[in-house]
Design a protein around this nucleic acid. Structure first.
Lengths: 339, 339
DNA sequence: TTGAAAGCGCTAACAG
DNA sequence: CTGTTAGCGCTTTCAA
């Protein structure tokens, strides 16, 4: 009882329906140029025989694959949300997605290499560590859209969240709650870290809080947030904006273990609005990226490049929006500094 | 400065190197039958021209794709860990993976359909809601390996964790710590739920704790664990085994909010050893699935089916192992029931 | 060791 | 509206 007798081909359907392969091809593609009756019959035969078009042969012949390759990292929860959006956007534009994952034991280069062999027409990269020169060498072969990272290259499109604006929103929110001594835990060398830090600086200055600017070294992990919290404990501010949600979680944990109440003694804002931040017991106020917009614009750029109709700017920056949850509250009156 | 002049083909390399396409094909595949010098030269030319083989054409001609299709759900963190293992296992076996994601707006049927068009030689399904009959209709076309779910079908291989054993390990651990009043929060209709519940029953009985058996309705989400905790609060046991980590997290939160200390008043064991359970402030004792073993055995089954050398059992059950962290501790003396 | 030729399943001209 | 013909880029006999 082995499975997969043999593939049903166009020829099989054609002979069974008593027409030519070309005609079946037309019917299967829904292309114009076939009689209604014939169309009906061919479709019926195809269904009965269980015909499945062979995308490889189809694409080989037509020269185009209508495929957009995506490199994502299995470890990054945010990437999965983004995939959801990309499937939708690509489908609407008449393209298919082909996925290539980066794992702890499978690098970006391998992931991109597979995509190139698959003959996709554009590549969308989620984050990643590739240097600009490397991206450029790929971009010499096909359009490259880099998401959630920057790239100072004229031949690469970038689509990402407005990190500086996100920090502004976080600081504005805290200031509106009466906070002044607002610290920032940064993300180290990661993409977006510099922008989020700069945004924090700008916002503080804009509010005339230059004197309260305080940046603590951090990173993307829970442990980084925890370490930053330890450092903050000696002289706690009344609020903190953190590079991302995971780091914020580590920070929260250490703060609470040390008897500080959140948001009573201290308010905390994360970044990314990940599943983690939505958990009831974390309930983190955070800056959410607009996933659907990011995905839609990335596909839009890819398609424009593929079809040679690209006109707009190579960099697309999407504004984020603050999601207020339970880790931010009014500054305690006593917390106001002397000034 | 448009990119992608034109694809470099075998013919380009051949003419540039002054040999036939057939010979270049041999060299590119590393197949035997080419002189060392020629091989060297062809390779050099290919590199210089930036030749990339076209997997479509290659597979079309050779009739085989050496592709294993994988259907995973972007929302399930565990699936991502499994992908990592599968890439490794498939690579070792000389196969490539082709991914198709299930998203909130892209169903299993679509995901499988794409894979069929890609002409992969076997399909690995992670969980999913497909009924046995549907799986069977796919299995009629190509080998199907179902992971993390059961399927009472002779034509479908299943590879999953030993859920009953996992529950045994959890209960054994708690009993060893002196617990007797151990409750179980189940997973509703999800895959593995019935087995984990049955395993709990068995283990309790084996320890002569029939009288303390207590199953509370639950589910896969944080909210389900939280609701179960509310129900448990009226008459708290001294320990709880929960269907999965996320649900356990919800349960923990409600317990603590109600003044119970974990593990002081109550011990909690989750299931899956997800990233969540490893967070410092959650630090959940849990049952971990052996991801590498699961992945390796799934690929092994797929390859055996593809190559027609399948012999072993159609169901492969992998033993899990308990990961002891901070949510389990000795039963308080006073907590012992009168008996 | 190397080359010529056929053809995988399909689409795209072009005829009829 | 339908059929014929010619390949897409590659692998695979089969000869040389």
């Amino acid at each position: 009882m082995r499975s997969g007798e043999r593939r049903i081909t166009l020829a099989d359907v054609a002979s069974e329906a008593g027409v030519s392969v070309a005609l079946v091809s037309i019917v299967m593609r829904g292309a114009p140029g076939a009689g209604a009756a014939t169309r009906e019959r061919v479709l019926e035969v195809a269904r009965r025989l269980g015909y499945q078009p062979d995308s490889r042969a189809r694409l080989l012949r037509s020269g185009r694959s209508r495929l957009i390759g995506v490199v994502f990292d299995v470890r990054h929860p945010f990437h999965h949300d983004l995939l959801t959006g990309l499937y939708d956007a690509a489908g609407k534009a008449g393209y298919q997605l082909t996925l290539s994952a980066v794992t702890p034991r499978r690098g970006e280069r391998t992931a991109v290499g597979d995509l190139l062999q698959d003959r996709c027409e554009a590549i969308v990269l989620f984050g990643g560590q590739m240097r600009g020169s490397e991206l450029a060498s790929i971009a010499a072969r096909l359009p490259v859209i880099a998401m959630m990272r920057s790239a100072r290259r004229r031949d690469i499109d970038v689509v990402h969240n407005d990190d500086a604006l996100g920090s502004h929103q976080a600081v504005d929110h805290l200031v509106a709650l009466g906070h002044q001594r607002i610290a920032h835990v940064d993300g180290g060398a990661l993409h977006g870290s510099a922008e989020r830090r700069a945004g924090y600086h700008e916002a503080m200055r804009r509010h005339g809080l230059d004197g309260h600017i305080r940046v603590v070294a951090g990173g993307p992990g829970e442990e980084h947030g925890a370490a930053a919290a330890e450092r903050l404990l000696a002289d706690p501010p009344t609020a903190v904006t953190v590079f991302n949600d995971l780091s914020a979680t580590g920070l929260l944990d250490v703060l609470r273990r040390n008897g500080l109440s959140v948001p009573g003694d201290l308010s905390v804002v994360g970044y990314d609005d990940t599943t983690l931040s939505r958990l009831a017991h974390i309930d983190l106020t955070t800056v959410g990226q607009d996933i659907d917009a990011l995905a839609a614009r990335a596909v839009e750029r890819a398609v424009e490049r593929i079809e040679g109709t690209a006109t707009g700017p190579r960099a697309v920056i999407i504004p984020p929006r603050l999601v207020v949850r339970g880790t931010t509250g009014p500054a305690a009156a006593g917390a106001l500094p002397p000034r």
